[in-house]
Design a protein around this nucleic acid. Sequence first.
DNA 1: TCGGAAACTGAATGCGCATTCAATATCATG
DNA 2: CATGATATTGAATGCGCATTCAGTTTCCGA
Lengths: 345, 345
Amino acid sequence: MPRRSVTSYDIAKAAGVSQSAVSRAFSPGAPIAAKTRERILNVAAEMGYQPNAIARSMSSARQDTHQKSGMVGVIVTRLEDPFFAHTIAHFSRHLQASGWHMLLFTVDNEVEVDGALNALMQYKVDSIIILSAILSKHMARVCRDQGTPVMLYNRGAEGLNVNSVQIENHEGGRIAADILREAGHERIAFVAGDPNDETSQGRAAGLAERLAEDGLEVFLHETGDYTFVGGREAGLRLFSRVERPDAVFCASDVMALGVLHAARHDLGLEAPRDFSLIGFDDIPAAAWPGHMLTTIRQPIRRMIREAVDIVIDQMNTPDQPPRVTRFSGALILRNTVRGAGPGST
Amino acid sequence: MPRRSVTSYDIAKAAGVSQSAVSRAFSPGAPIAAKTRERILNVAAEMGYQPNAIARSMSSARQDTHQKSGMVGVIVTRLEDPFFAHTIAHFSRHLQASGWHMLLFTVDNEVEVDGALNALMQYKVDSIIILSAILSKHMARVCRDQGTPVMLYNRGAEGLNVNSVQIENHEGGRIAADILREAGHERIAFVAGDPNDETSQGRAAGLAERLAEDGLEVFLHETGDYTFVGGREAGLRLFSRVERPDAVFCASDVMALGVLHAARHDLGLEAPRDFSLIGFDDIPAAAWPGHMLTTIRQPIRRMIREAVDIVIDQMNTPDQPPRVTRFSGALILRNTVRGAGPGST
DNA sequence: TCGGAAACTGAATGCGCATTCAATATCATG
DNA sequence: CATGATATTGAATGCGCATTCAGTTTCCGA
């Protein structure tokens, strides 16, 4: 049952005008008499006509720069993570509010990114946003050659010549170290997400640097895979040692909550009584009454607005140099660091 | 700087063949000599050519049924909710694994659905999946007329003539009521998500029905807006009454966790000592050691596989009658219901 | 009232690709 | 070696729309 959908020609015929007129009726700013436009729009509404976005994009290919598909490609890892879910939700809303649509890819490891990127290029998306994943030099070049702006969110862009918006990881690590040192801790452990990724490494480096200034070293290094379960296991390992850490800094809140639950419910240890704990991100669950996790907050609303603004700006006026923005995390004092409660500042 | 991207013509010229040949080289099953194809693919690889998905979709419009864009439109509400984040993550992976791409829309209320739907139709997506939102009769008709399969996930499709995959809400409510009655509870409160939506209502109805069989009524009705904060506030209201409920059934785990944290940390009440608590969904946080929430699990992997399978099947062979599938929730016994621990079955 | 500018309008064209159709090349048989 | 069958190939075409270009109409001022 080949049901062809209504096209601009059908409307043209019905309204007694040319196809061009119909097209113009739907193009803001196109030269067409107000009355004509209105009549056409009425007919179109009656017949349920909507311009075909695909065809639109096709025909715009003749234009100056390149095709405008109206779509922004977004590549994300670990969408099940509350932090990313929030991030995507915000991206989606912002993009939509500005009239852009989101073509979403989930990837499980950084190798898949290239595949997703390829698919995105095939769809001629007008720009690409990559969350927490690495971009190969090769694909960075390809995108640049195509004139497709790329935004690396939550990752740096050293030598890649693309945009980037991220939190100051190193600085965040320092802040955590600071408050922990102020509280008098000396055996400070670090729980990495993925020890090989830039994010974790930056936070660890900030911590180590600050400790070094006091002649200290990171007491123990653990890995929690950026998950609750991983954090919980890391916590179990950490606290089963003969010499236990007296404070733990986790590269993410989810892992910190894992440590907290492990300590409290598996081992009977309480923060901040028996140890201090700091997370990173400030996800909603960090503020739950039973957690009250002290953490470094990422200003994700501002960060996302910035990322979206940059990308939109570059879609509108191409060939701009890439922009790199870093945001500072803010220490959110709750109840998991000794002597540093919400009121104590 | 109008950088036109490489087209099939460029490859044709470089490989000394016609454009048709290039097209065929990229179409599995097309009549073309193996040697020719190989040569073309090599040239293409060298020149970084990838067929333009948009143009592909355009040209396929001449075919039998309708355009194939290779995209599935997904509309979601409350993406920040862990339950939906998980759901979307699974949808995304499944769809990708089968070679489909996901055009994602986030909507904040059910009115926006129509807008998103319109945008989706403009992009000629090959099918549409709607998560937890209502589809208007009008748009259902439009989609049907266009031949675009629609899947309502987490919502029924009474009188809409579209596909639907959802959990048995009513049955889930009964199961919750059952275990609570077995535990001897009599003052059972219900915390709705949105009291007007089908999901919440179904769960409430199941609860009420089962209680009625014992001559009981739902002790108190509260609303938690499907959020942690909403659940927490509902819990506070519930437990500040002179006559407190002795059990609470929440329409979602997030709200149940809100009730749990409120009871435990704001009021010093403990489950199951002072009251019993059951949630719905079985999100990861329900299993955290500090929560161990008894709940009704949604088999979301199976549900999503089913939803995706139906949709893909209908994209491949159009004009099938809509399918409706209901899944049963499973009671997951953890530690928030009196006398019904994990080992007690 | 008339000429010219400004405002509209329609015919024609191409975006990049898949497909049809006719032509050519290749092959297996008798 | 001839001949029909089969495998490949290229030229031409259209998908639905935006835009260019060449009219055609309308509006002003003189």
